[in-house]
C-alpha cells in the first residue's frame, strides 16, 4: 500500500501536476487559434509569436512596477502587469487586422492567402521581439515559489516521495479556469457572444439577421489577443520566456485545436490536456515508478522511458496524425470546410 502511494506521489509530481499546468497553457493557446479559425476562417501562424509579444510587454511592465517598488507580495508581479500586457497586445493585433487582414476579408481572399499574411505578421513580430528583447532566455518570476514543498509533503504524509506544487502551476490552473469560465459565459449568454457563434456557424444567415461582421471580427481578435497574452505569460512564469520556444509552441497548440475539433472551444480545451498529458506521459522515465510497483528490491535496468524528452514534438504530431486519419473532425465535432 505504502509503495502504491509512493508511486502515485512520484507520478503526480512529475507528470500529473506539470501536465495540468502545461495542459492549461496549451488549452488557452488553442482557444485563441480555434476562435480565429471559426470567425476569420484561417490558421493563424502568428499566434505563437503573438504570445511572445504579449509576454514581452508584460515583462516590460513588470520591470517598471518592480522599479517603482510595487509587487504582488507572494504572487508574481507579472500578474499585476498582465492587464497592461493584454491591452498592448490587443492594440497591436487590432492594428495588424486593420492594416493587413481587413483587406483580404474585403476581397474575399482564399484562406491560404490569409495564412500567408499571418506568416508575414509572424516575421514582423519575431523581428520586433528580438530587437526589443533579444533572443535569449529570461525568467521573470518573483514571489513565493512553492505552495507545497517536497519535504513538507513528505513530513505531512510520511511517504518517501515528495510532491511539490509550485505556485506557478497553481496560478496557471486557477487563472485558466477563470478565463475559460468567463469565455464560455460570454459566448453562451452575452449578445455579442451569441452573434459570434451565429457568425461562425453560418456567415450568410448571421449577416441576414443583422449581425455586424466588423464587430464580430474585432471582438474575436480582442479575445484571441487576450488569450494569447495570458497563455504566454503563464507559460513564461511556469518555465521561462524565450522567443524561439514560443514559436515552437505553435505545433502543440495547433495539434490541440485540431485534435479537439477545430472551431470548437470545448474541443480546444480537451485537446490541450490530451496533448499535454501524452507528451508528459510518453517522455517520462518510468524506472522508479515501476520499481515501487514491482516486487521488493527489483529495479528496472533501463530508464523505462518510451521516448526521450527531445521528441515531445513527435508526440503531438503522432496524435495529430492519428486523429486526422481516424476522426478528421476531432474528438468533439469541429468543422471540416
Amino acid at each position: 500500500m505504502h509503495d502504491i502511494l509512493n508511486a502515485l506521489a512520484l507520478y503526480s509530481n512529475y507528470v500529473i501536476v506539470p501536465g495540468l499546468a502545461y495542459g492549461s497553457q496549451l488549452a488557452l493557446g488553442a482557444l485563441g487559434v480555434t476562435l480565429i479559425y471559426s470567425i476569420l476562417r484561417f490558421s493563424n501562424f502568428a499566434h505563437g509569436d503573438t504570445m511572445a509579444f504579449g509576454t514581452m510587454l508584460t515583462i516590460a511592465v513588470t520591470n517598471v512596477f518592480l522599479g517603482w517598488g510595487i509587487s504582488a507580495g507572494p504572487l508574481p508581479t507579472a500578474l499585476l502587469a498582465l492587464p497592461f500586457g493584454i491591452l498592448g497586445t490587443v492594440a497591436f493585433v487590432l492594428l495588424t487586422d486593420r492594416l493587413v487582414y481587413r483587406y483580404y476579408r474585403k476581397v474575399k481572399a482564399a484562406s491560404i492567402v490569409l495564412m500567408m499574411a499571418s506568416v508575414g505578421i509572424m516575421f514582423i513580430i519575431n523581428g520586433i521581439v528580438r530587437v526589443a528583447y533579444g533572443p535569449a532566455e529570461r525568467k521573470f518570476f518573483d514571489g513565493e515559489r512553492f505552495i507545497i514543498k517536497a519535504r513538507a509533503f513528505k513530513e505531512m504524509t510520511g511517504l518517501d516521495e515528495g510532491l511539490a506544487i509550485r505556485s506557478t502551476q497553481a496560478i496557471t490552473v486557477v487563472v485558466a479556469l477563470v478565463v475559460m469560465i468567463a469565455l464560455f459565459w460570454f459566448l453562451q449568454k452575452s449578445r455579442t457572444g451569441k452573434a459570434m457563434r451565429a457568425y461562425s456557424d453560418n456567415e450568410d444567415l448571421a449577416l441576414l439577421s443583422g449581425v455586424n461582421p466588423d464587430k464580430v471580427v474585432m471582438v474575436a481578435w480582442i479575445i484571441a489577443a487576450a488569450l494569447a497574452t495570458i497563455a504566454g505569460v503563464l507559460y513564461g512564469l511556469d518555465k521561462s520566456f524565450k522567443p524561439f520556444t514560443y514559436f515552437q509552441l505553435l505545433l502543440p497548440i495547433f495539434a490541440s485545436a485540431i485534435v479537439g475539433g477545430i472551431g470548437n472551444p470545448i474541443g480546444a480545451i480537451a485537446g490541450g490536456f490530451v496533448i499535454a498529458f501524452s507528451e508528459m506521459g510518453v517522455t517520462y522515465a518510468y524506472k522508479r515508478f515501476l520499481a515501487y510497483l514491482g516486487p521488493d528490491g527489483w529495479v528496472p535496468d533501463s530508464l523505462m522511458q518510451l521516448l526521450s524528452t527531445d521528441y515531445k514534438f513527435a508526440v503531438s504530431f503522432v496524435i495529430l496524425v492519428l486523429v486526422l486519419l481516424v476522426r478528421p473532425t476531432g474528438i468533439f465535432k469541429g468543422k471540416v470546410l
Binding site: L251, Y311, P328
Partner: peptide, 28 residues
C-alpha cells in the same frame, strides 16, 4: 501518404511538425 489527403491548412501543420521531428532526430 499520411497528410496529402487533408485540407491545405492541416497539411501545412503536418509538414511543420514533420520538419521539427526530422531536425529533432538529427539533433539527438
Amino acid at each position: 501518404k499520411v497528410a496529402l489527403g487533408l485540407r491545405s491548412d492541416y497539411l501545412a501543420i503536418a509538414t511543420l511538425g514533420i520538419a521539427e521531428i526530422i531536425v529533432a532526430v538529427l539533433k539527438n
